[in-house]
Write a protein that binds this DNA or RNA. Structure first.
Length: 255
DNA sequence: ATCGGTACCTGCACGC
DNA sequence: TGCGTGCAGGTACCGA
């Protein structure tokens, strides 16, 4: 998503319009629009699932897509268009049917982004192992905890655990180093492949150009309940871990 | 400090 | 056709 938003870097925002205040965090929409108006977008970076734009003259514009959020360059507004950013080069729309996404402007770098864990593609294995230590939670819940590592969501947690042969309900503290190594490698492989495939488009995700990803065709367990495991043929099962669906092969992923 | 559960929304598929 | 139920790429907040 951030890569496809790159054409906005260096561009001036002519105006901003907020149609749905529910997705706005931290303040008055008019003040926010005034703060953005006439300023250039100096930089655009992703921190886990958070997108942060640096605004000329100070300030940060943070966007989170939640489950169904979209950032679209050009295109028509619709029922779920909550914000419109008019740049000199064209329009950027924020759409989100479920309204779990959010937009926040802050003068300082946003604290909740600063408090996230490390990037899973940047963390080293020793750091990863030590972060696993002393945890009492189930491994799936830990992978979804953005203060552990940032950016792993439900799809990639399930896919990484499958590749590592770890049961989603396995207790974190009982995972030995050799198995942790497999998990570390699996996370890196899954994320790298998924990014190369342009992400997973289940029903909503498209990039800023409106293009779908195709990693969903490579999912081995996610939303494949009842289908045969690609490695052993055993039917994939679904359990809840921390109220989130978790898909796994009961034969390949033992506790 | 860390945990599990819940709330926040809309849309869709499914069974009756 | 319509209605109720369950489910969906996430995070924040609460009490324990």
């Amino acid at each position: 998503m951030v890569r496809t938003l790159a054409p906005l870097i260096g561009k001036r925002m002519v105006s901003a319009e907020f149609r749905n205040l529910r997705v706005l965090r931290g303040g008055d929409p008019d003040a926010m629009a005034a703060r953005l108006q006439g300023r250039r977008l100096l930089a655009l970076r992703r921190y886990g699932k958070f997108i942060v734009a640096t605004i000329e003259g100070g300030g940060y514009l943070m966007v989170h897509l939640g489950m169904t959020g979209r950032l679209l360059l050009g295109g028509a507004t619709g029922k779920h268009t909550h914000a419109i950013f008019n740049f000199e080069s064209g329009t950027l729309l924020f759409d989100d049917s479920r309204q779990f996404g959010c937009i926040e402007f802050s003068e300082e770098f946003p604290g909740r982004v600063a408090r996230l864990g490390p990037e899973p593609l940047e963390i080293g294995f020793p750091e990863f192992v030590s972060a696993l230590g002393g945890r009492k939670t189930r491994i799936k819940a830990l992978l979804l905890n953005q203060k552990f590592v940032r950016g792993i969501g439900n799809i990639y947690a399930d896919e990484a655990l499958f590749r590592a042969g770890i049961h989603p309900q396995a207790l974190t503290g009982r995972i030995r180093v050799a198995r942790a190594r497999k998990l570390y490698d699996a996370i890196q492989a899954v994320l790298t492949e998924a990014i190369a495939a342009g992400g997973s488009s289940i029903s909503d995700y498209v990039d800023a150009q409106g293009r779908k990803g195709f990693f969903q065709t490579s999912h081995r367990v996610y939303q494949r309940t009842g289908e045969a495991c690609v490695d052993c043929g055993t039917p994939i099962r679904r359990v809840l871990v921390g109220q989130r669906s978790s898909h796994f092969c009961p034969q390949c992923q033992k506790r």
